[in-house]
Design a protein around this nucleic acid. Structure first.
Lengths: 209, 209
DNA sequence: GCACGTACATACAGGCTTGACTGTTTGTTC
DNA sequence: GAACAAACAGTCAAGCCTGTATGTACGTGC
């Protein structure tokens, strides 16, 4: 059936099994949440044996840490690709926010949310999450600086990416927190970016009294 | 030693044990997170027996649901009290946001965050969290409408509380997500509220084309 | 003071999870 | 093609967690 009878190399076997395991981990995080995600459940979903899992990721922590890197990396790459493939005329701040929102509004971000919250009370996980999270933001900030150099030069403009990340995280969460409307929040964020300068002035005035 | 030799009434005993259990639950959520919060751990922290716990809250879900209501309720009440006790001259939108931020920046909100995220994959919990969360927002919105009636009348102004909730949630989370700086985010939010009208106009212009 | 119900205490059983351990297959190297 | 290492398979035991069940102490109404 699967026409390829050529034996796979060790590297290929390794990579495929690891991908199966990490994707299963991420999907389990999305569907069951962190608390109910067990290694048993992961190997079941991945369709690999316990031995295979323990070979590649000896402990549950190893597995989760690797999943963090994978899911952040995927989103980071996806955002960059999508934004770069926009027709030049549409490479606006507003479009960038819409694109970013499509990331934060995705199942993948639900997994990230589980991991971020779990990382609060897990030293080992927190180190990785913060590092990878910061790298993610930095990658978006680099694109931002590349395409909107004028905005990026201002003090507030340079912090705007971090602000957008915070707002979009909150918006994504408000979906099931019972407060706020993500669409309104995102629209307001987009509107805000259109008036960065007045905000900047207001902020400066305020800090100098 | 404890001077009071008068026997406690059943109601008093009940209330005290329940308070011990719920507070222990909340503290455990803060310190250990949702995944590692067990009924065993809770009764240990509360200093009550397993039987007492099961008597008041037969299942773990009952315990967690009650904790949701308690922790949201406490924060709701605390905000209202603090805001109402401000000297009239300081009852500004900015002060309100600072006050709200002190809520979102507290340990209590860390517990709420655990519960909100857990509720995503827990039907029973989600119903409660959304209801109580919405009530919390409504209570803040009511105060907002009472003290800033002019703002509250505008379309965007009326949605501003939900927006603030989303932003502050995100800001609180960005602390351990590795991206954004909560202080910058909150400052920007405060600045934004000072220029609600331009935002409103920008948003309307944008929607009408 | 007695009967009753609420509040509490302790022990137990079933299920699940994790990490460890032993054995087998597959690819690679010389 | 033989030796070696990596990849994989399946089982086991210890620990924890939850819910249950049975027995005891305390407060309340008559």
């Amino acid at each position: 059936m699967s026409g390829d009878q050529r034996p796979r190399t060790q590297a290929e076997r390794s990579a495929e099994t690891q991908a199966l395991l990490l994707d299963a981990t991420i999907i389990s995080l999305v569907e069951l949440g962190y608390a109910r995600t067990s290694t048993t459940e992961i190997v079941r979903r991945a369709g690999v044996s316990r031995g295979a899992q323990v070979h590649h990721y000896p402990t549950k922590a190893d597995l989760v840490v690797a999943a963090v890197e994978r899911v952040f990396g995927q989103q980071e790459q996806q955002f960059a690709e999508r934004f770069r493939s926009l027709p030049p005329g549409e490479r606006t701040v507003e479009r960038a926010i819409e694109l970013l929102w499509s990331i934060f509004d995705s199942p993948a971000f639900q997994a990230i949310l589980e991991l971020v919250v779990a990382s609060r009370t897990d030293e080992q996980l927190r180190v990785v999450v913060q590092a990878v999270g910061a790298r993610f933001e930095q990658s978006v900030a680099d694109l931002y600086a590349e395409f909107f150099p004028d905005l990026a030069r201002t003090p507030v403009g340079s912090g705007l990416v971090g602000f957008a990340f915070a707002v979009l995280s909150g918006a994504a969460m408000s979906d099931y927190a019972g407060f706020g409307d993500p669409r309104v929040t995102v629209d307001l964020l987009k509107a805000l970016t259109g008036i960065v300068d007045p905000v900047l002035e207001a902020l400066n005035d305020e800090r100098h009294d």
